[in-house]
Write a protein that binds this DNA or RNA. Structure first.
Lengths: 155, 155
DNA sequence: TTATAATTGACAGAAATACTCAGGTATGAT
DNA sequence: ATCATACCTGAGTATTTCTGTCAATTATAA
């Protein structure tokens, strides 16, 4: 039950992008340095992020990437969707999957519920919140319990 | 973000075991037939389930497996723990992992929260509930919305 | 026109997954 | 005792997925 490192990198890269972004497009090289990732690999990620309209690109000298929308409108689950195929925990339930869901398939409801939980949680966090958190940390405010992870949309 | 098929099989096999169990030990061959799994593979799973005290075994002719405890005391997350290494979504946070969690690691809180959500949800479902559900389905009560997946321990 | 930087697709090594197989061991019935 | 049953174990293997590189192309600003 692991999230691919690709998905993890994508989220981190988006935070970096948002922090570095000040109206000007951000060079991937800078993000690669910050996140200690190879440039070609990062490029691969951003192609996918662009296709999914998470970022937009500006080509040529002085070009680079920037968030396609305000950070408050970019959710973590969207970022992950862009680079990873699925948040659905079992294959047969994927759209296009061939789950007959016959009477034997009693565990379906469990996987379905699990998938909803994962989705809901990741959809409850925005890039804006992560960035705010990152800024707080960078300011040397090395808060021990800086982020109380939100347990749900509302409890 | 996929649950291994091994984990899926384990849960299904446990439901089968519990349904077939009537005080007598259950032959793995029967479960293999029911779930359409190879016997050796199923044996592998049950060795792990036994080590984790989810089931107990009785050797010799007429032997087999039975739940180690009342089904109401067996949680789905325990079953999955037994056969799969982890429910923690990122490697560096595994116990024994080497997450320095320095100030850059702003995404840690997200993965931590996600892991807790997954754990909580799977811990909220017992073998007893799954079995009850299965029986209902088997009785031809092909209820469309037979199981409203519980959204949480309590809301 | 030239340098910069995004864009694309093919490909490869490594690791994890999903099994199979060939035995061994304990137990109850005959 | 011994035999059949059924648990138990570990090695091994094919397949897939993951992770990342490389080479080449296209678009644009200076």
């Amino acid at each position: 039950m692991r999230l691919s490192t690709k998905a993890q990198y994508a989220v981190r890269a988006m935070v970096s992008l948002n922090l570095l972004h000040d109206g000007q497009p951000v060079n991937l090289r800078d993000i690669a340095k910050r996140e200690d990732l190879s440039l070609p690999y990062l490029e691969q990620l951003f192609v996918m992020l662009r296709r999914n309209e998470i970022v937009k690109s500006i080509r040529g000298p002085g070009g680079g990437y920037m968030p396609a929308r305000p950070a408050a409108d970019i959710r973590v689950d969207e970022i992950i969707d862009s680079v990873e195929e699925t948040l659905v925990p079992v294959a047969c339930m994927e759209k296009g999957g061939k789950c007959l869901c016959s009477e034997q398939c009693v565990t379906r409801s469990v996987w379905q519920g699990l998938g909803e939980r994962i989705r809901d949680f990741l959809a409850s966090i925005t890039l804006e919140e992560l960035s705010r958190e990152a800024r707080k940390k960078l300011e040397g405010f090395s808060g021990e319990e800086s982020l109380t992870v939100r347990k749900g949309k509302e409890e």
